[in-house]
Design a protein around this nucleic acid. Structure first.
Lengths: 144, 144
DNA sequence: AAAGATTGACTCATCAATCTTT
DNA sequence: AAAGATTGATGAGTCAATCTTT
């Protein structure tokens, strides 16, 4: 009473499961420097943009909703990794500005992230990684 | 100043991104019957176990923490999909019992889930799905 | 009116602490 | 003391409503 009657059934679960394992692994490494994956992504976006961005643009780059960014920046601010500043060009807007501690956390976090990624993908050889990337790209870009 | 100096760097992001797309697609379909993926998984576990389970066993099967199950069952209960009942074998324990509405939601939800999965995997042929499954299994079971 | 940010309410996950029953 | 469940705090995401500034 437990067989899978469906052909493709279960592959979504495999993707979701693999992603869960991967994410947990990376997050556990990042926790060493007080970072989470969303925090690291935010710091990366700021770093790439020259250390500061209006919150709305940060939301665009992280592809998430505005209110989420407000709260994420709240947390980063209480961590001491970013500060809020006035936007000289638009008085409605607020800038998220990376601090020295944020810069440091980003550099440490980036190294930990890459290291964790190599560890997690360590079971696959170069060909398999290429195959996986190709399949996932195809899957991820397949808009119904 | 933006090149990838690392060989494998970025593949984790691809896995996470693909999982995000997949999950969003499935969740949007499930929303039609008032279900989320965690809710469907819980109903599936109950269904497979004969319509009722102690909360702790439900937590084991869903591989998550006990307090999470308490809240998930709270939500399912307020949806009218499960009820809590006393466990005749252990007075400390509480049973989550599927209701008629829960049974119906589970059947509808399962069909929507499988349909959404086929849609999402529709860009891949049978060989590619098999390859993907093999790679993800290898990746997911690679314990550091 | 529209844009930028915030606040509040919700789902989902974790951990830590608590309460009851064994 | 240990097991089962709950509660509370926190992180991360969503949406809807609100407030200020343009």
């Amino acid at each position: 009473m437990n067989e899978m009657p469906d052909g493709v059934s279960g592959q979504a679960a495999a993707v979701l499961h693999a992603a869960g394992v991967l994410q947990a692994h990376i997050e556990s490494r990042l926790a060493e420097v007080g970072l989470s994956l969303p925090k690291l992504m935010a710091l990366r976006a700021l770093s790439q943009a020259g250390e500061s961005l209006p919150l709305s643009q940060l939301a665009d780059r992280l592809a998430c909703v505005k209110s989420n960014i407000t709260q994420l920046v709240d947390r980063l601010e209480s961590d001491g990794f970013v500060t809020r500043a006035a936007d000289p060009n638009d008085r409605r807007s607020r800038l998220a500005v990376m601090t020295a501690a944020g810069r440091y956390a980003f550099e440490k976090g980036s190294m930990l992230h890459d290291q964790a990624e190599r560890e997690a993908l360590g079971g696959l050889d170069a060909t398999e990684v290429r195959q996986l990337a190709a399949l996932l790209t195809k899957l991820g870009s397949h808009h119904v």
